[in-house]
Nucleic acid binder design. Structure first.
Lengths: 333, 333
DNA sequence: CTGAAAGCGCTTACAG
DNA sequence: CTGAAAGCGCTTACAG
């Protein structure tokens, strides 16, 4: 049923080389021949097959996004930025969802790289051990890291330590003493950094640091970056520290849950989230802005440049997150 | 740099057929030979290339999601459901983002089908004209429609007319007379149906229908399904109908914007959204639930079944949306 | 259990 | 401007 270049060539009375040229925008085909081929191709709905083209030309024209969790807001925004850029360039996007844990996780990542189903890879929120990164570096493929960085790879990330520091310091400087942190999975890379920044703010302010002020929710689904994670964390927080002054949340989506918990508990303290997802502006949530869309866009650009020039110097872009104050911190600054 | 099956065969002292068999889980290879091949392959980081395998075996093991707008909540949820299913089945996911408008839109859709870069296609929120659907039906590929249906295609959708009807009727039955509708792009398929349901509720209730009660926002970005779309629509609504009794919003994300507008305008009327995205529960938004995750999951399953059996009877799954009442409609029912 | 060989559907120098 | 032919990296009957 599906026709090939041979069928078209036969029906149009030309060679397969000519048919191929017609579909490759080659100028070396007479208008007459071109029209004849196009007409035949159209009549049977022919179009070159992606895989065969890829094999023969060694060009796939697709880049692959490798992600751990597909349905979260952070990734969605990043993806939007990637698509904005890709569309302009005519590349296709492929998505690989890494589902394994532990060693299997790395094996999956390595596997997808080896299959060569794309010409370039965008690693989004993929966090590995140093020796694993080193191993990956040996493969002759272009990879750009998003939300992570490691020596030797192009990357686009945000300074998580600084972001958490800024949010926490803002509370401390405003005179609040008991400033809690609603955390997510503590072994996750971004959380480690955010906790670091949170601590640092206490130290810089000359306050004693109390680790019991850092509390997570009751679920590790999506690494704890969920409404429910924030909701249950705030409930726990209120049990342990009923006199909390203010709270920093490790993501906006958790802050949404925390806000609800506060409402249910009938308490009200200033809150700062993290990310600045779209709804935050509308629900009046103060937050630490990560330029997610830009990150996806820039990362894609960086990757394409790398693909076109392997000798290019490594570029590590690190954004400084920006604090955005809204209703949830009203009157504190 | 990149090694092929030939390199491995040579180094392991076997034929390429044997190497191929090792990587295809064929049992017809002695354990000894298998180990030898695997060792060599590991030492150079070899793995069969996806495209070459695809060409030779005519199996790609990838399914493609074709979507108009990538970064929206509805799609994100659907995608999550697709991945849940795909992961279990060992298929890869590819995403094609249709960016064109008008005729170009259809051309892009047709083009991606013809390229055969996947064995099955999931069309998500792709709405075409009858003659375009008919044309698509001629191609020998498996396609499952999500959020749309058309004779001759497998599909998974939700009854938009009924959803809007239920929401509106609930208000009307509760005694509200002036019930507005915050709409999105009126030429979009789901909006047409939701407006239909909205109207129907008035007719069934014996009320006169006033089309000036249907108002959209000031932007068609993402077809108007944005916070901003809802925000500006509510502002307009308040100008035209300052004495509105209640309001139905065509999506939760717009409702978030509308809620903010109401706050800024210092008015308060009952609101019902559409979708039931995750945050809705936490912000207390009443809504019409679309089982997005399930839809993605079921659609993927349907597609795989179709791929395995082209003779299978067409299956058109239509969900009945469910009204979920929360704080935003407190006390009305 | 293993190998030789044909074939998958294209692209691309090389000639003319 | 056009064609014949080799090659891309695999898989898979067919033999043995």
């Amino acid at each position: 049923m599906a026709s090939t270049i041979y069928d078209i060539a036969a029906k149009a009375g030309v060679s397969i080389a000519t048919v191929s040229r017609v579909f490759n925008q080659s100028t070396n085909v007479s208008q007459k021949t071109r029209n004849k081929v196009l007409k035949v191709a159209e009549s049977v709905g022919y179009h070159p097959q992606a895989y065969a083209q890829g094999l023969a030309s060694k060009k796939l024209n697709t880049i692959m996004a490798v992600v751990p969790i597909i349905s979260n807001y952070f990734f969605m925004e990043i993806l939007g930025g990637i698509q904005d850029k890709l569309t302009k360039l005519g590349y296709d996007l492929s998505i690989f969802n890494v589902t394994g844990a532990g060693d299997v996780f790395f094996e999956q990542v390595e596997h997808v790289i080896r299959r060569r189903a794309a010409e370039g890879y965008l690693f989004i929120s993929i966090h590995l051990h140093p020796d694993q990164w080193d191993k990956l570096q040996k493969y002759p493929v272009s990879i750009t890291l998003v939300d992570e960085f490691y020596e030797g790879f192009d990357s686009v990330s945000v300074d998580n330590v600084q972001g958490a520091y800024t949010a926490t310091k803002t509370f401390l400087d405003a005179g609040y003493k008991k400033v809690g942190m609603i955390s997510a999975l503590e072994t996750s890379k971004p959380i480690k950094d955010r906790i670091k920044g949170y601590k640092l703010a206490f130290e810089d302010s000359g306050h004693i640091f109390d680790s019991s002020l850092i509390i997570s929710g009751d679920t590790d689904y999506r690494d704890g970056f969920t409404e429910r994670g924030g909701y249950t964390a705030m409930q726990r927080m209120n049990k342990v520290h009923p006199t909390l002054d203010a709270c920093f949340c490790s993501s906006d989506i958790q802050a949404v849950g925390a806000l609800k918990a506060m409402e249910d508990l009938d308490i009200s303290i200033p809150l700062i989230g993290y990310d600045d997802i779209e709804i935050s502006e509308y629900i009046g949530l103060s937050t630490v802005r990560q330029p997610m869309r830009d990150m996806g866009y820039i990362a894609t650009q960086t990757l394409i440049e790398r693909m076109n020039n392997e000798e290019k110097a490594i570029s590590q872009t690190m954004y400084s997150p920006k604090l955005i104050l809204r209703k949830s911190t009203n009157g504190i600054v």
